[in-house]
C-alpha cells in the first residue's frame, strides 16, 4: 500500500485539480496548488483547536505557518498529514487524497517528539526515510544506504553517521531529521519548527537546504517561531490563531495589522518585523 506510484514524477498533478475546484482566478496564471485545506476543524475533546481553516498552499514555495503558542500550528500540519482526526473538512494534496499522495510527502516532526536514547545511529534514522518506498517487510539495501549517506553528506553529518543519536547535539539531531526527509525524495516537505534550538551554523545550513528544495521545484511548509526571520527565509505565510487570519505572499500578508490580529496585543517585536518586510520587499524583486 505504500509502493510509490510510478507516474508521479512525470505527470503534473496540479493541473487537473486547479481546473476542477477553483473558479478561474485572476488572469495571471495562479501558482499550482500543493495543498488544499478545505474547511478543516480539529477538536481535542471538547475544545476546538483549529476552527474552520480554509486555505490553499501554492507549490514551489517556502511557506511559514506563524501564530502564537496554542494557535494550532502543529495541529494544522498534523491534520494535513492525517495524524489527527478531523472533526470536519477535507485535505487534498496535489489534488489527490492523502493516501494516494503519501509518496510525495516528507515530514520532519519536532525534535522532542522522539526518544533520543533509542538505540539507533544517525544512519539508521536517515534510513527510516526510505521505509515508505520500500513498503512492508522489505529491508533497506545498498542503494538505500548510499542515498542515506548522500543525504547525511548534504547536511554535513557524514562523519557522524555511525554515532548513536543521543550523542549528537541539538543542531546535529535536527540535521539528521532533515537528512531523513531528504532521502524520502518528496515534493512536499512539512517541518515542525525546524529552527527550534539549533545553532547558527545549522540554521544557515537548513536555510540553504530549503532554498535548494525550492530550486528543484519542491515545496516546504514549516511551523516557524522567529518572526524576525520570516521575511528573509519564507516567501509565503499562513497566519494562524485557531482560525486562519491571513495567507499569501510574505510581502503582501506579513503586515503589522495582520500580525496584531494574529497575536493580539501581546507582541513587542511586531513592528520591527513588519519594517523588515518593507525593507526587504522595497526593490520589488521577489527572491
Amino acid at each position: 500500500m505504500t509502493i510509490a506510484e510510478p507516474n508521479t514524477s512525470s505527470a503534473d498533478p496540479a493541473v487537473p485539480r486547479a481546473t476542477q475546484h477553483h473558479p478561474p482566478g485572476p488572469p495571471t496564471a495562479p501558482a499550482p496548488v500543493a495543498v488544499e485545506v478545505h474547511d478543516v476543524t480539529v477538536a481535542y475533546h471538547r475544545k476546538p483547536v483549529l476552527w474552520d481553516v480554509d486555505v490553499q498552499i501554492p507549490s514551489s514555495r517556502l511557506v511559514a505557518i506563524v501564530g502564537p503558542n496554542g494557535a494550532g500550528k502543529s495541529t494544522l500540519l498534523k491534520a494535513i498529514l492525517g495524524l489527527v482526526p478531523l472533526a470536519s473538512g477535507t485535505v487534498e494534496i496535489f489534488g489527490r487524497s492523502l493516501r494516494r499522495a503519501r509518496s510525495l510527502i516528507a515530514y520532519v516532526p519536532q525534535r522532542e517528539s522522539v526518544d533520543w536514547d533509542f538505540p539507533v545511529s544517525a544512519l539508521d534514522v536517515v534510513l527510516m526515510g526510505r521505509y515508505g518506498r520500500l513498503g512492508w517487510f522489505r529491508r533497506p539495501g545498498r542503494k538505500d544506504r548510499d542515498a542515506a549517506m548522500a543525504a547525511l553528506e548534504k547536511v554535513g553529518m557524514k562523519d557522524l553517521a555511525h554515532r548513536q543519536i543521543s550523542q549528537l547535539s541539538g543542531g546535529q539531531q535536527q540535521r539528521v531529521f532533515l537528512a531523513r526527509a531528504l532521502v524520502q525524495e518528496a515534493r512536499l516537505y512539512f517541518m515542525d519548527e525546524p529552527f527550534a534550538g539549533v545553532d547558527a551554523a545549522t540554521e544557515k545550513a537548513i536555510v540553504d537546504l530549503l532554498r535548494e528544495i525550492r530550486r528543484s521545484g519542491g515545496t516546504v511548509v514549516a511551523v516557524h517561531h522567529d518572526l524576525q526571520t520570516v521575511p528573509e527565509y519564507f516567501d509565503h505565510v499562513l497566519m494562524l490563531n485557531m482560525r486562519l487570519v491571513a495567507a499569501g505572499p510574505t510581502e503582501e500578508v506579513f503586515t503589522t495589522p495582520n500580525l496584531h490580529t494574529t497575536y493580539g496585543g501581546r507582541l513587542t517585536l511586531l513592528d520591527q518585523a513588519a519594517e523588515a518586510v518593507r525593507r526587504s520587499t522595497a526593490p520589488g524583486a521577489p527572491r
Partner: peptide, 17 residues
C-alpha cells in the same frame, strides 16, 4: 523494520503510510 520505525517515531511511520 516496521517495529523499529513505529517504536522510534510513530508519527513518521504514519506519514509514510
Amino acid at each position: 523494520k516496521e517495529l523499529k520505525i513505529v517504536s522510534f517515531d510513530a508519527g513518521l511511520a504514519a506519514s509514510l503510510g
